[in-house]
Amino acid sequence: MDFKGSDTIPGPRAEDQLPHTTQAAAKIVIVGGFGVGKTTMVGSVSEIKPLTTEETMTQAGIGVDDNFGSDSKTATTVAMDFGRISITDQLVLYLFGTPGQQRFWFLWNGLFEGALGAVVLVDTRRLEVSFDVMGRLEERGVPFVVAINSFPDAPRYPIEELRTALDLAPDIPIMECDARRRASSRDVLMTLMRFLHSLAMTGSRT
């Protein structure tokens, strides 16, 4: 790899530096199908301009039934946007906007295993694209909440009808949101935290 040289690397702005007291970071994932608003949600709550980490996926990782078509023998670059929220001077929270296809998840070690929980972003125009990811989270025991990103031309269903359609366990929160609005995205994260807190009160769900 041709390295650019250290003088050309832009780092975090001075105001974006974490204090030296920062002891540890936790992460949550925002997962959903193509174009559902993952990057928008990360950007609306992040204190830094969202950044992107990339990973290369080689042949072995590419399934046969995907849409890479004739390029399926070559390596594919998978990008993941992320942002950050400082919680205290010792704790920082990272948010990762992760593509819905599970074959991408293993590229980043511990992404789902270590996440405190997940937000599943859903678009009611294409509800079924989030079915698989929700099932995978259930199988892996990753607690999640569902946020319906309200696009203007999307069909609107009563929230209880969506709960039934998504076959959500009764305790799993489901809510509408506008990923472009910080307050709305913050409410979604808050709902996830309250849900995780309720799991802590009742013991883990198994």
Partner: peptide
């Protein structure tokens, strides 16, 4: 990092909610 535990850490979650 702080990783998910079988039973979530309540004081951690409370700190995150406050943040």
């Amino acid at each position: 990092p702080i990783v998910r535990q079988a039973v979530p850490d309540r004081s951690l979650l409370e700190a995150v909610m406050n943040g």
